[in-house]
């Protein structure tokens, strides 16, 4: 029995009073983020137009993602939020006929679409967790060490250390420490997704992109992943795409609302959910469309 995100979201309109109650949560759980006044910009998205073949998926999107913060992208299906996320580590390169027609995306000042950028290096620094958990059909241990082995790390002690650290980091260690050599496919859905997160943090990226990481999980597993995101925020910059507004409200520091390929509003999460500047944002977060 799986309750999917849209169903959760559907509960919003019927109980609008919950919203103000949950919205301040980020502020409460992340006082550190608030206390640091001048957050440094890590990713600078500057007037980006993006095309799938002939159809334009992003229209002139500009936003700055801050270092060591959780940024949520929300919006209805097909609004371009996932597309933008996949631009950040150039996963869109894998899809035929895609191109950034205008604008630039800079990470620490380096334009990642520049010709001399090594996309492999980029992806090492900008990890990704996918909507559908995708552990490799290998053991848990091999899943975690996959990225490190690619980089040529063979030292057993070092690998063991990283495995433990990553699994602890992903709050999975206690559940799997006795069966590290079991197949990653034998884990439950939520565990698989956390394994993927552990796999991503094992290579110590600066940024972790999460593409609807909880959409295929049940509420209990979702809660665990959300908890995990709270723990990771101190070490990594996290960008999360979500369908679930409560999730965005609970986990993120800043929220960007996309609609029809345009960035409608980008502000502190609290503001988006309590006091949106734009009428469309207001309509969406209060559950009137989407």
């Amino acid at each position: 029995m799986v309750i999917t995100a849209p169903i959760l979201m559907d509960t919003l309109p019927s109980a609008p009073t919950i919203r103000p109650a949950t919205a301040p949560a980020p502020a409460a759980t992340a006082p550190a983020g608030q206390a640091a006044p001048a957050a440094e910009t890590l990713i600078d998205i500057d007037h980006v137009d993006f095309f799938y073949g002939q159809s334009q998926a992003l229209h002139d999107v500009s936003l700055q993602i801050e270092d060591k913060k959780v940024t949520a992208f929300i919006g209805p299906s097909g609004c371009g939020k996932s597309t933008l996320l996949r631009c950040l580590n150039r996963m869109n390169d894998l899809i035929d006929g895609t191109r950034v027609a205008k604008g630039s995306i800079k990470i620490r000042g380096v334009d990642i679409h520049q010709a001399d950028v090594d996309v492999i290096e980029l992806r090492k620094r900008v990890g990704m967790v996918f909507q559908k958990s995708n552990p490799f059909p290998k053991s848990i241990y091999e899943n975690i060490t996959f990225g490190l082995r690619l980089q040529g790390v063979t030292n057993k002690a070092r690998l063991d250390e990283v495995v433990e650290k990553s699994l602890r980091g992903a709050a999975l260690w206690d559940e799997v420490k006795d069966r590290l050599n079991a197949s990653g496919l034998g884990l439950s859905g939520g565990q698989q997704q956390r394994l993927c997160i552990a796999r991503a943090i094992a290579v110590e990226p600066e940024v972790i992109l999460m593409d609807e990481p909880c959409s295929a999980l049940d509420p209990v597993a979702t809660a665990k992943v959300e908890e995990l995101i709270q723990e990771l925020r101190t070490r990594f910059t996290i960008v999360i795409v979500t369908h679930n507004m409560q999730q965005a409200a609970r986990c993120s520091d800043k929220t960007a609302f996309f609609y029809m390929g345009k960035l409608i509003e980008y502000a502190d999460t609290r503001n988006i959910f309590t006091n949106p500047a734009n009428a469309q944002t207001e309509a969406y977060v209060s559950g009137r469309f989407g």
Binding site: N89, M91, L94, I120, E121, R123, K124, R125, G127, M128, F130, K132, S133, N134, P135, F136, P137, F146, G147, L150, Q151, C196, R199, A200, V203, L209
Partner: peptide, 17 residues
Amino acid sequence: PKGFREGSLALGATKWQ
């Protein structure tokens, strides 16, 4: 599955790897 490829690439593997 496509996920195997994407997962690997997202970890910084080259296409060949």
